[in-house]
């Protein structure tokens, strides 16, 4: 099972970036977290003045709108350059990386997007690394248009939830590798609809704080996807691979370009 995994791993696991994000995000999801914290001055004022409450409500809406705006897909680029460039543009804008077929990984650099992107109109995208991006249900439209996508990494995406997973069936024909590690809003309910992805060979569902029974969930997912290597977190490491095998596995993985 593990043998084809190495060759399939198109997305380089970037863990040093991810781990800090996991803790930060899981705290924000934890409903008791906000109650345990000391009450801020704004909270105190909001309890006593309607105006402050209204302002806070407005700020909350503003936050939501900001994420929404970031996830709007650009119809202009899609019409002019096709779905591949539009998808790549969206991911690069969000801070992720894309890999066109037979090309190197493309990552956003400080100067903005490279001009090369606009020439790749006909080249399909085979891998997307959207680790830590603020992709929402709407933003996923851009990814679902990439019909040749083989590898998708949604590690530590704070807005990816069960609703998003229910749309991944559109990539069922091509998708072979999927990483959902560290997404704070994914639960076992969303993982249940990955059964559409029968071509999947590798699935990473480690560090999902919203999953209630991680061990049982992993077993059930393995039953559901018999041809797929399912990566869980620490609780299953002893069951799946020996510790030395595990460490060798990660060491041999390609270094990100």
């Amino acid at each position: 099972m593990a043998a084809p995994g190495a060759s399939l791993r198109l997305v380089a696991p970037v863990w040093n970036r991810g781990t800090s994000g996991i803790r930060g995000l899981s705290r924000s999801v934890d409903p008791e977290g906000s109650q345990r914290k000391g009450r801020t001055l704004l909270q105190f004022l909001a309890d006593h003045f309607y105006d402050v409450e209204a302002v806070r409500e407005y700020l909350l809406q503003k936050q939501v709108l900001k994420v929404l705006r970031k996830n709007r897909s650009s119809t202009y680029i899609k019409e002019r350059y096709g779905p591949y460039v539009a998808g790549a543009y969206f991911i690069l804008k969000q801070g992720g990386a894309v890999k066109f077929q037979d090309k190197e990984w493309m990552r956003p650099n400080g100067r903005g997007l490279s001009g090369e992107l606009w020439k790749l109109r006909e080249v399909p995208i085979e891998a997307v690394d959207a680790s830590g991006c603020a992709i929402t249900y709407q933003g996923l439209d851009n990814l679902l248009a990439l019909k040749e996508l083989q590898s998708l990494s949604l590690q530590c995406c704070p807005h990816v939830d069960d609703w998003c997973l229910s749309r991944l069936y559109q990539l069922a024909n091509s998708l072979r590798e999927l990483s959902l590690a560290g997404c704070p809003r994914i639960s076992e309910r969303g993982l249940a609809c990955l059964h559409h992805l029968q071509n999947l060979r590798r699935l990473d569902i480690s560090h999902l704080p919203a999953v209630s029974n991680p061990g049982l969930t992993q077993i059930l997912v393995e039953e559901m996807l018999p041809n797929c290597e399912v990566l869980g977190a620490d609780w299953a490491q002893g069951l799946k691979l020996g510790p030395e095998e595990q460490s060798r596995d990660t060491a041999s993985s390609p270094i990100p370009a």
Partner: peptide
Amino acid sequence: NEYLAVVDDPPLDLQFNPSG
């Protein structure tokens, strides 16, 4: 959680099962 957001209250967990 956008429609029914209340300031300072925890977000709702609808427990939606998208199984069809």
